[in-house]
Design a protein around this nucleic acid. Structure first.
Lengths: 204, 204
DNA sequence: CGCGTATTCTATAGGTGTATAGAAAAATTA
DNA sequence: TAATTTTTCTATACACCTATAGAATACGCG
Protein backbone atom coordinates (compact mmCIF):
# COMPACT_ATOMS: atom_id res chain seq x y z
CA UNK A 1 0.00 0.00 0.00
CA UNK A 2 2.38 2.75 1.17
CA UNK A 3 1.44 5.91 -0.66
CA UNK A 4 -2.26 6.34 -1.18
CA UNK A 5 -3.67 4.70 1.94
CA UNK A 6 -6.11 3.51 -0.62
CA UNK A 7 -9.83 3.27 0.06
CA UNK A 8 -9.63 -0.46 -0.31
CA UNK A 9 -6.97 -0.67 2.36
CA UNK A 10 -9.03 1.48 4.68
CA UNK A 11 -12.05 -0.66 4.07
CA UNK A 12 -10.18 -3.87 4.81
CA UNK A 13 -8.68 -2.30 7.89
CA UNK A 14 -12.15 -1.47 9.12
CA UNK A 15 -13.12 -5.09 8.57
CA UNK A 16 -10.08 -6.06 10.62
CA UNK A 17 -11.15 -3.75 13.44
CA UNK A 18 -14.62 -5.22 13.40
CA UNK A 19 -13.29 -8.76 13.43
CA UNK A 20 -10.99 -7.90 16.30
CA UNK A 21 -13.92 -6.36 18.17
CA UNK A 22 -15.97 -9.52 17.86
CA UNK A 23 -13.12 -11.76 18.89
CA UNK A 24 -12.02 -9.59 21.81
CA UNK A 25 -15.61 -9.27 23.01
CA UNK A 26 -16.03 -13.03 23.15
CA UNK A 27 -12.60 -14.20 24.32
CA UNK A 28 -11.16 -11.15 26.02
CA UNK A 29 -8.00 -9.39 24.92
CA UNK A 30 -5.54 -11.80 26.48
CA UNK A 31 -7.67 -14.83 25.75
CA UNK A 32 -7.85 -14.04 22.05
CA UNK A 33 -4.93 -14.73 19.74
CA UNK A 34 -3.94 -12.89 16.62
CA UNK A 35 -4.72 -16.14 14.86
CA UNK A 36 -8.30 -15.95 16.09
CA UNK A 37 -8.71 -12.48 14.63
CA UNK A 38 -7.13 -13.48 11.34
CA UNK A 39 -9.36 -16.53 11.15
CA UNK A 40 -12.42 -14.35 11.68
CA UNK A 41 -11.28 -12.30 8.67
CA UNK A 42 -10.51 -15.31 6.54
CA UNK A 43 -6.79 -14.61 6.35
CA UNK A 44 -3.75 -16.21 7.96
CA UNK A 45 -2.23 -15.15 11.24
CA UNK A 46 0.83 -13.46 9.81
CA UNK A 47 -1.22 -11.45 7.34
CA UNK A 48 -2.91 -9.61 10.15
CA UNK A 49 0.24 -7.57 10.61
CA UNK A 50 -0.41 -5.93 7.31
CA UNK A 51 -3.20 -4.03 9.09
CA UNK A 52 -1.88 -3.71 12.65
CA UNK A 53 1.68 -3.35 13.76
CA UNK A 54 0.82 -5.23 16.95
CA UNK A 55 -2.02 -6.94 18.76
CA UNK A 56 -2.08 -4.02 21.14
CA UNK A 57 -2.66 -1.60 18.29
CA UNK A 58 -5.64 -3.71 17.27
CA UNK A 59 -7.08 -3.34 20.75
CA UNK A 60 -6.48 0.39 20.71
CA UNK A 61 -8.27 0.74 17.38
CA UNK A 62 -11.21 -1.31 18.56
CA UNK A 63 -11.56 0.75 21.72
CA UNK A 64 -11.38 3.99 19.80
CA UNK A 65 -13.89 2.71 17.30
CA UNK A 66 -16.11 1.68 20.17
CA UNK A 67 -16.27 4.98 21.97
CA UNK A 68 -15.73 7.70 19.40
CA UNK A 69 -19.05 8.41 17.76
CA UNK A 70 -20.74 7.38 20.96
CA UNK A 71 -19.27 10.51 22.58
CA UNK A 72 -20.12 12.54 19.51
CA UNK A 73 -23.76 11.61 19.84
CA UNK A 74 -23.74 12.63 23.47
CA UNK A 75 -22.39 16.03 22.43
CA UNK A 76 -25.44 16.43 20.27
CA UNK A 77 -27.86 15.26 22.94
CA UNK A 78 -26.33 17.58 25.51
CA UNK A 79 -26.43 20.53 23.15
CA UNK A 80 -30.03 19.95 22.18
CA UNK A 81 -32.64 22.04 23.93
CA UNK A 82 -35.06 19.23 24.58
CA UNK A 83 -36.68 18.67 27.97
CA UNK A 84 -34.90 16.43 30.41
CA UNK A 85 -36.92 13.29 29.88
CA UNK A 86 -36.34 13.36 26.14
CA UNK A 87 -32.62 13.78 26.65
CA UNK A 88 -32.46 10.89 29.07
CA UNK A 89 -34.35 8.71 26.65
CA UNK A 90 -31.99 9.77 23.87
CA UNK A 91 -29.01 8.96 26.06
CA UNK A 92 -30.19 5.48 26.91
CA UNK A 93 -31.18 4.88 23.30
CA UNK A 94 -27.83 6.02 22.00
CA UNK A 95 -25.94 3.93 24.51
CA UNK A 96 -27.84 0.70 24.00
CA UNK A 97 -28.09 1.09 20.25
CA UNK A 98 -24.32 1.40 20.18
CA UNK A 99 -24.06 -2.00 21.72
CA UNK A 100 -26.21 -3.53 19.05
CA UNK A 101 -24.79 -1.70 16.07
CA UNK A 102 -21.13 -1.49 16.87
CA UNK A 103 -20.38 -5.18 16.90
CA UNK A 104 -19.29 -5.33 20.48
CA UNK A 105 -16.60 -2.65 20.15
CA UNK A 106 -18.06 -0.58 22.97
CA UNK A 107 -18.09 -3.65 25.19
CA UNK A 108 -14.43 -4.20 24.39
CA UNK A 109 -13.70 -0.59 25.25
CA UNK A 110 -15.37 -0.99 28.62
CA UNK A 111 -13.91 -4.35 29.55
CA UNK A 112 -10.43 -4.35 28.05
CA UNK A 113 -9.17 -0.80 27.69
CA UNK A 114 -7.31 -0.99 30.97
CA UNK A 115 -4.88 -3.40 29.34
CA UNK A 116 -3.64 -0.64 27.07
CA UNK A 117 -0.51 1.24 28.11
CA UNK A 118 -0.95 4.52 29.91
CA UNK A 119 -0.33 6.66 26.86
CA UNK A 120 -2.98 5.09 24.68
CA UNK A 121 -5.41 4.97 27.55
CA UNK A 122 -5.24 8.69 28.09
CA UNK A 123 -7.08 9.61 24.92
CA UNK A 124 -9.81 7.12 25.66
CA UNK A 125 -10.05 8.28 29.24
CA UNK A 126 -10.53 11.84 28.09
CA UNK A 127 -13.38 10.75 25.85
CA UNK A 128 -14.97 8.76 28.65
CA UNK A 129 -14.70 11.69 31.02
CA UNK A 130 -16.16 13.98 28.44
CA UNK A 131 -19.11 11.63 28.10
CA UNK A 132 -19.73 11.57 31.83
CA UNK A 133 -19.42 15.32 32.15
CA UNK A 134 -21.95 15.90 29.40
CA UNK A 135 -24.35 13.57 31.12
CA UNK A 136 -23.76 15.29 34.45
CA UNK A 137 -24.51 18.57 32.76
CA UNK A 138 -27.86 17.24 31.62
CA UNK A 139 -28.72 16.37 35.19
CA UNK A 140 -27.56 19.75 36.46
CA UNK A 141 -29.78 21.49 33.93
CA UNK A 142 -32.69 19.34 35.03
CA UNK A 143 -32.12 20.14 38.70
CA UNK A 144 -32.13 23.85 37.86
CA UNK A 145 -35.32 23.45 35.84
CA UNK A 146 -37.00 21.51 38.62
CA UNK A 147 -37.46 18.46 36.41
CA UNK A 148 -35.68 16.22 38.89
CA UNK A 149 -35.05 16.16 42.59
CA UNK A 150 -33.10 19.16 43.87
CA UNK A 151 -30.92 17.09 46.18
CA UNK A 152 -29.68 14.79 43.43
CA UNK A 153 -26.00 13.95 43.29
CA UNK A 154 -25.47 14.49 39.57
CA UNK A 155 -22.13 12.72 39.46
CA UNK A 156 -23.63 9.69 41.12
CA UNK A 157 -26.62 9.77 38.80
CA UNK A 158 -24.44 9.94 35.70
CA UNK A 159 -22.30 7.01 36.83
CA UNK A 160 -25.43 5.04 37.58
CA UNK A 161 -26.96 5.64 34.18
CA UNK A 162 -23.73 4.61 32.50
CA UNK A 163 -23.51 1.57 34.73
CA UNK A 164 -27.03 0.37 34.10
CA UNK A 165 -26.67 0.90 30.36
CA UNK A 166 -23.43 -1.06 30.29
CA UNK A 167 -25.01 -3.86 32.26
CA UNK A 168 -27.91 -4.11 29.87
CA UNK A 169 -25.56 -3.66 26.96
CA UNK A 170 -23.70 -6.76 28.04
CA UNK A 171 -26.91 -8.72 28.13
CA UNK A 172 -27.86 -7.39 24.71
CA UNK A 173 -24.54 -8.43 23.24
CA UNK A 174 -24.85 -11.90 24.70
CA UNK A 175 -28.53 -12.46 23.96
CA UNK A 176 -29.51 -11.56 20.42
CA UNK A 177 -33.14 -12.34 21.23
CA UNK A 178 -33.55 -9.33 23.48
CA UNK A 179 -35.77 -6.55 22.20
CA UNK A 180 -33.50 -3.55 22.44
CA UNK A 181 -36.25 -0.98 22.31
CA UNK A 182 -38.16 -2.64 25.09
CA UNK A 183 -35.03 -2.59 27.21
CA UNK A 184 -34.53 1.08 26.39
CA UNK A 185 -38.07 1.92 27.40
CA UNK A 186 -37.90 0.01 30.66
CA UNK A 187 -34.49 1.37 31.60
CA UNK A 188 -35.59 4.94 31.07
CA UNK A 189 -38.78 4.37 33.00
CA UNK A 190 -36.94 2.78 35.90
CA UNK A 191 -34.41 5.59 36.05
CA UNK A 192 -37.05 8.28 35.91
CA UNK A 193 -39.67 6.83 38.22
CA UNK A 194 -37.98 4.16 40.26
CA UNK A 195 -39.72 1.12 41.62
CA UNK A 196 -42.18 2.74 44.00
CA UNK A 197 -45.78 3.34 42.98
CA UNK A 198 -45.87 7.12 43.24
CA UNK A 199 -49.00 7.47 41.15
CA UNK A 200 -50.81 5.32 43.61
CA UNK A 201 -50.25 7.90 46.34
CA UNK A 202 -51.93 10.54 44.26
CA UNK A 203 -54.52 8.82 42.12
CA UNK A 204 -55.24 5.61 43.99
CA UNK B 1 -0.19 -32.90 53.29
CA UNK B 2 -2.17 -35.94 52.14
CA UNK B 3 -4.06 -37.28 55.10
CA UNK B 4 -5.39 -34.67 57.45
CA UNK B 5 -6.14 -31.82 55.05
CA UNK B 6 -4.60 -29.97 57.94
CA UNK B 7 -5.94 -26.63 59.13
CA UNK B 8 -2.68 -25.01 58.14
CA UNK B 9 -3.03 -26.31 54.59
CA UNK B 10 -6.59 -25.04 54.37
CA UNK B 11 -5.51 -21.68 55.67
CA UNK B 12 -2.71 -21.39 53.14
CA UNK B 13 -5.03 -22.52 50.41
CA UNK B 14 -7.44 -19.76 51.35
CA UNK B 15 -4.56 -17.32 51.10
CA UNK B 16 -3.84 -18.70 47.66
CA UNK B 17 -7.45 -18.19 46.60
CA UNK B 18 -7.36 -14.64 47.87
CA UNK B 19 -4.12 -13.93 46.08
CA UNK B 20 -5.50 -15.40 42.89
CA UNK B 21 -8.61 -13.26 43.27
CA UNK B 22 -6.56 -10.09 43.52
CA UNK B 23 -4.36 -10.98 40.58
CA UNK B 24 -7.24 -12.13 38.35
CA UNK B 25 -9.24 -9.02 39.22
CA UNK B 26 -6.42 -6.76 38.11
CA UNK B 27 -4.97 -8.62 35.13
CA UNK B 28 -7.82 -10.83 34.01
CA UNK B 29 -7.66 -14.62 33.94
CA UNK B 30 -5.73 -14.94 30.71
CA UNK B 31 -3.61 -11.89 31.39
CA UNK B 32 -2.45 -13.21 34.73
CA UNK B 33 0.18 -15.92 34.99
CA UNK B 34 0.60 -18.54 37.66
CA UNK B 35 3.84 -16.76 38.41
CA UNK B 36 1.93 -13.59 39.20
CA UNK B 37 -0.25 -15.42 41.69
CA UNK B 38 2.70 -17.15 43.28
CA UNK B 39 4.56 -13.86 43.57
CA UNK B 40 1.56 -12.32 45.32
CA UNK B 41 1.76 -15.13 47.86
CA UNK B 42 5.52 -14.86 48.28
CA UNK B 43 6.24 -18.30 46.85
CA UNK B 44 7.68 -19.51 43.53
CA UNK B 45 5.66 -20.33 40.46
CA UNK B 46 6.00 -24.09 40.69
CA UNK B 47 4.97 -24.15 44.34
CA UNK B 48 1.53 -22.88 43.46
CA UNK B 49 0.68 -26.35 42.21
CA UNK B 50 0.82 -27.58 45.74
CA UNK B 51 -2.50 -25.77 46.23
CA UNK B 52 -4.13 -25.99 42.79
CA UNK B 53 -3.84 -28.74 40.27
CA UNK B 54 -4.20 -26.18 37.50
CA UNK B 55 -4.64 -22.48 36.84
CA UNK B 56 -8.20 -23.22 35.85
CA UNK B 57 -8.91 -24.78 39.22
CA UNK B 58 -7.65 -21.59 40.83
CA UNK B 59 -10.15 -19.60 38.80
CA UNK B 60 -12.95 -21.99 39.72
CA UNK B 61 -12.13 -21.67 43.39
CA UNK B 62 -12.01 -17.89 43.22
CA UNK B 63 -15.37 -17.75 41.46
CA UNK B 64 -16.96 -20.09 43.95
CA UNK B 65 -15.46 -18.13 46.82
CA UNK B 66 -16.81 -14.97 45.23
CA UNK B 67 -20.41 -16.00 44.84
CA UNK B 68 -21.14 -18.58 47.51
CA UNK B 69 -21.99 -16.76 50.68
CA UNK B 70 -23.33 -13.93 48.60
CA UNK B 71 -26.16 -16.23 47.50
CA UNK B 72 -26.54 -17.51 51.03
CA UNK B 73 -27.13 -14.00 52.28
CA UNK B 74 -29.75 -13.45 49.62
CA UNK B 75 -31.53 -16.58 50.83
CA UNK B 76 -31.77 -14.96 54.22
CA UNK B 77 -32.95 -11.64 52.89
CA UNK B 78 -35.59 -13.28 50.75
CA UNK B 79 -36.83 -15.42 53.61
CA UNK B 80 -37.05 -12.50 56.01
CA UNK B 81 -40.44 -10.93 56.52
CA UNK B 82 -39.26 -7.36 56.34
CA UNK B 83 -41.04 -4.76 54.23
CA UNK B 84 -39.90 -4.32 50.67
CA UNK B 85 -37.74 -1.26 51.14
CA UNK B 86 -35.75 -2.88 53.92
CA UNK B 87 -35.15 -5.94 51.79
CA UNK B 88 -33.97 -3.87 48.85
CA UNK B 89 -31.62 -1.97 51.10
CA UNK B 90 -30.33 -5.23 52.52
CA UNK B 91 -29.82 -6.57 48.98
CA UNK B 92 -27.80 -3.59 47.84
CA UNK B 93 -25.84 -3.56 51.07
CA UNK B 94 -25.03 -7.24 50.81
CA UNK B 95 -23.99 -6.92 47.19
CA UNK B 96 -21.75 -3.91 47.57
CA UNK B 97 -20.27 -5.03 50.87
CA UNK B 98 -19.26 -8.24 49.14
CA UNK B 99 -17.22 -6.24 46.71
CA UNK B 100 -15.34 -4.52 49.47
CA UNK B 101 -14.87 -7.50 51.77
CA UNK B 102 -14.28 -10.33 49.38
CA UNK B 103 -11.08 -9.05 47.86
CA UNK B 104 -12.33 -8.80 44.32
CA UNK B 105 -13.47 -12.42 44.11
CA UNK B 106 -17.00 -11.46 43.17
CA UNK B 107 -15.67 -9.24 40.41
CA UNK B 108 -13.64 -12.14 39.12
CA UNK B 109 -16.73 -14.30 39.19
CA UNK B 110 -18.64 -11.77 37.13
CA UNK B 111 -15.93 -10.99 34.61
CA UNK B 112 -14.04 -14.24 34.15
CA UNK B 113 -16.33 -17.17 34.95
CA UNK B 114 -17.20 -17.64 31.29
CA UNK B 115 -13.65 -18.86 30.70
CA UNK B 116 -14.36 -21.92 32.81
CA UNK B 117 -15.39 -25.11 31.03
CA UNK B 118 -19.07 -25.90 30.76
CA UNK B 119 -19.09 -28.36 33.61
CA UNK B 120 -17.59 -26.06 36.19
CA UNK B 121 -19.70 -23.18 34.98
CA UNK B 122 -22.93 -25.03 35.60
CA UNK B 123 -22.67 -24.95 39.36
CA UNK B 124 -21.89 -21.24 39.33
CA UNK B 125 -24.69 -20.58 36.89
CA UNK B 126 -27.13 -22.34 39.14
CA UNK B 127 -26.06 -20.14 42.02
CA UNK B 128 -26.39 -17.01 39.92
CA UNK B 129 -29.83 -17.99 38.72
CA UNK B 130 -30.85 -18.77 42.25
CA UNK B 131 -29.76 -15.30 43.26
CA UNK B 132 -31.75 -13.65 40.52
CA UNK B 133 -34.84 -15.72 41.25
CA UNK B 134 -34.77 -14.81 44.89
CA UNK B 135 -34.52 -11.16 43.98
CA UNK B 136 -37.37 -11.49 41.51
CA UNK B 137 -39.42 -13.09 44.25
CA UNK B 138 -38.86 -10.06 46.44
CA UNK B 139 -40.21 -7.86 43.68
CA UNK B 140 -43.19 -10.12 43.10
CA UNK B 141 -44.04 -9.97 46.78
CA UNK B 142 -43.82 -6.21 46.68
CA UNK B 143 -46.10 -5.99 43.68
CA UNK B 144 -48.67 -8.11 45.48
CA UNK B 145 -48.38 -5.95 48.58
CA UNK B 146 -48.73 -2.77 46.55
CA UNK B 147 -45.34 -1.51 47.67
CA UNK B 148 -44.20 -1.05 44.10
CA UNK B 149 -45.79 -0.43 40.75
CA UNK B 150 -48.22 -3.14 39.65
CA UNK B 151 -46.98 -3.14 36.07
CA UNK B 152 -43.36 -3.78 37.00
CA UNK B 153 -41.42 -6.36 35.00
CA UNK B 154 -39.83 -8.18 37.93
CA UNK B 155 -37.29 -9.99 35.82
CA UNK B 156 -36.16 -6.73 34.31
CA UNK B 157 -36.03 -5.07 37.71
CA UNK B 158 -33.91 -7.84 39.20
CA UNK B 159 -31.44 -7.73 36.31
CA UNK B 160 -31.23 -3.98 36.67
CA UNK B 161 -30.51 -4.08 40.37
CA UNK B 162 -27.80 -6.67 39.82
CA UNK B 163 -26.39 -4.61 36.98
CA UNK B 164 -26.26 -1.36 38.86
CA UNK B 165 -24.72 -3.04 41.89
CA UNK B 166 -22.05 -4.67 39.74
CA UNK B 167 -21.30 -1.36 38.08
CA UNK B 168 -20.82 0.39 41.40
CA UNK B 169 -18.99 -2.63 42.71
CA UNK B 170 -16.43 -2.21 39.97
CA UNK B 171 -15.96 1.41 40.89
CA UNK B 172 -15.61 0.46 44.54
CA UNK B 173 -12.97 -2.12 43.78
CA UNK B 174 -11.00 0.35 41.69
CA UNK B 175 -11.39 3.38 43.95
CA UNK B 176 -10.67 2.64 47.58
CA UNK B 177 -11.64 6.20 48.51
CA UNK B 178 -15.31 5.65 47.78
CA UNK B 179 -17.61 5.62 50.77
CA UNK B 180 -19.41 2.33 50.36
CA UNK B 181 -22.29 3.19 52.62
CA UNK B 182 -22.95 6.42 50.81
CA UNK B 183 -23.05 4.50 47.54
CA UNK B 184 -25.43 1.97 49.09
CA UNK B 185 -27.75 4.70 50.27
CA UNK B 186 -27.81 6.53 46.97
CA UNK B 187 -28.26 3.38 44.91
CA UNK B 188 -31.21 2.29 46.98
CA UNK B 189 -32.75 5.71 46.82
CA UNK B 190 -32.33 5.93 43.07
CA UNK B 191 -33.84 2.51 42.55
CA UNK B 192 -36.78 3.21 44.78
CA UNK B 193 -37.62 6.74 43.79
CA UNK B 194 -35.95 7.38 40.47
CA UNK B 195 -34.75 10.76 39.34
CA UNK B 196 -38.05 12.62 39.12
CA UNK B 197 -39.16 14.91 41.92
CA UNK B 198 -42.37 13.12 42.90
CA UNK B 199 -42.62 14.84 46.27
CA UNK B 200 -42.77 18.15 44.49
CA UNK B 201 -46.02 17.11 42.81
CA UNK B 202 -47.62 16.42 46.15
CA UNK B 203 -46.07 18.78 48.62
CA UNK B 204 -45.66 21.69 46.33
C1' DC C 1 18.50 -35.24 68.06
C1' DG C 2 16.56 -38.02 64.33
C1' DC C 3 12.76 -39.47 61.69
C1' DG C 4 8.78 -38.78 58.80
C1' DT C 5 5.90 -35.52 56.73
C1' DA C 6 4.69 -31.08 54.80
C1' DT C 7 6.04 -27.39 52.11
C1' DT C 8 8.83 -24.98 48.87
C1' DC C 9 12.47 -24.86 45.52
C1' DT C 10 14.99 -25.56 41.00
C1' DA C 11 14.95 -27.07 36.52
C1' DT C 12 12.77 -28.22 32.53
C1' DA C 13 9.70 -30.35 28.86
C1' DG C 14 6.34 -29.08 25.92
C1' DG C 15 2.93 -26.05 24.15
C1' DT C 16 1.27 -21.66 22.49
C1' DG C 17 1.49 -17.09 20.82
C1' DT C 18 3.63 -12.71 18.82
C1' DA C 19 6.03 -10.65 15.45
C1' DT C 20 9.20 -10.65 11.37
C1' DA C 21 11.18 -11.80 6.84
C1' DG C 22 11.01 -13.14 2.40
C1' DA C 23 8.46 -15.65 -1.17
C1' DA C 24 4.20 -16.06 -3.67
C1' DA C 25 0.00 -14.60 -5.50
C1' DA C 26 -3.29 -11.16 -6.82
C1' DA C 27 -4.41 -6.78 -8.45
C1' DT C 28 -3.38 -2.62 -10.95
C1' DT C 29 -1.36 0.08 -14.45
C1' DA C 30 0.98 0.99 -18.57
C1' DT D 1 1.35 -8.80 -21.86
C1' DA D 2 4.96 -6.89 -18.90
C1' DA D 3 6.05 -4.18 -15.03
C1' DT D 4 4.82 -2.44 -10.66
C1' DT D 5 2.42 -2.41 -6.46
C1' DT D 6 -0.62 -4.39 -3.11
C1' DT D 7 -2.00 -8.12 -0.50
C1' DT D 8 -1.50 -12.66 1.41
C1' DC D 9 1.14 -16.73 2.45
C1' DT D 10 4.74 -19.82 4.58
C1' DA D 11 8.12 -20.50 7.78
C1' DT D 12 10.35 -19.43 11.79
C1' DA D 13 12.85 -17.01 15.76
C1' DC D 14 11.98 -15.88 20.18
C1' DA D 15 9.58 -15.25 24.38
C1' DC D 16 6.47 -16.72 27.72
C1' DC D 17 3.63 -19.81 30.27
C1' DT D 18 1.80 -24.18 32.27
C1' DA D 19 2.53 -28.19 34.53
C1' DT D 20 5.57 -31.88 36.29
C1' DA D 21 9.47 -34.23 38.59
C1' DG D 22 12.73 -34.65 41.86
C1' DA D 23 15.74 -32.32 45.16
C1' DA D 24 16.00 -29.46 49.14
C1' DT D 25 14.39 -27.32 53.16
C1' DA D 26 11.33 -26.56 57.11
C1' DC D 27 8.35 -28.48 60.48
C1' DG D 28 6.36 -31.53 64.14
C1' DC D 29 7.06 -35.07 67.23
C1' DG D 30 8.88 -39.17 69.63
Amino acid sequence: MQNPESPKYQQQRLAAIRAAATVFAHKGYHGASTGDIAEAMGIKQGSLYYYFKSKEEALAEVCLYGISDYVQRMEEIAASRQPFEARLLATVTSHLSSYREKNEALKVHNDERLYLPELKRRKLKKMGSRYRELLEGIFEDAVRDGAIRPNLDCHFAAQSVIGICNAWGDLIVRDAELDVFEVIRKCTDLLLNGLVDHDHDRAG
